[in-house]
């Protein structure tokens, strides 16, 4: 099995890597590129812990081949803050205690950011359905949904 050479962009950084043709993007991010913020909770697209964006659209990186990243723009949790400055969602998650163990948090943040880009004023129901693919076993989602809605309100006010 010969490796595939891939040229891509990750969080704005031009990136090249070699991967096995059957390696997933998640494997590449975690094992080849050291970007372990994306987590593997199931490997079947059912938990959302590996959520990243490809060309602006949220996907489960466990269900994308590394080879498919050729020419794409990939966004991961590691690219969400700008330097020291946390994204408003990240800040609000801390303030609202929207995480307990924190394993689902990177995936939820990436998905929530995408929600607010698509819909700056989501209802509670819209937020819950958008995030239905991101399992959290600790919180019962209450504080997560509150944090997302509070961030949306803040960001609308700021813009």
């Amino acid at each position: 099995m010969s490796k595939v050479h891939v040229t891509t962009s990750i969080n704005g950084d031009p990136t090249e890597f070699l991967c096995e043709p059957d390696s997933t993007l998640l494997d590449v991010l975690r094992d080849e590129l050291g970007l372990t913020g994306s987590k593997e909770g199931c490997g079947t697209g059912d938990c959302g812990a590996c959520t990243v964006t490809i060309n602006g659209r949220v996907v489960c990186s466990c269900l994308v081949l590394g080879a498919e990243a050729e020419g794409a723009e990939i966004g991961t949790i590691e690219g969400m803050a700008e330097g020291d400055k946390l994204h408003p969602l990240q800040q609000k998650f801390i303030e609202h205690a929207a995480l307990q163990c924190g394993i689902c948090t990177p995936g939820i943040l990436v998905a929530a950011k995408s929600l607010l880009e698509h819909n700056p004023d989501p209802t509670e129901e819209e937020a819950r359905y958008w995030l239905a693919g991101n399992l959290c076993r600790c919180t019962g989602y209450d504080k997560i949904i509150r944090a997302v809605l509070a961030t949306a309100a803040d960001m609308r006010e700021a813009s």
């Binding site: 697209g45 959302g48 959520t51 659209r57 489960c60 693919g133």
Partner: peptide, 9 residues
């Protein structure tokens, strides 16, 4: 089909 993430693919 699936989640937001799945529907993107």
């Amino acid at each position: 089909i699936g989640s937001t993430q799945i529907q993107g693919r």
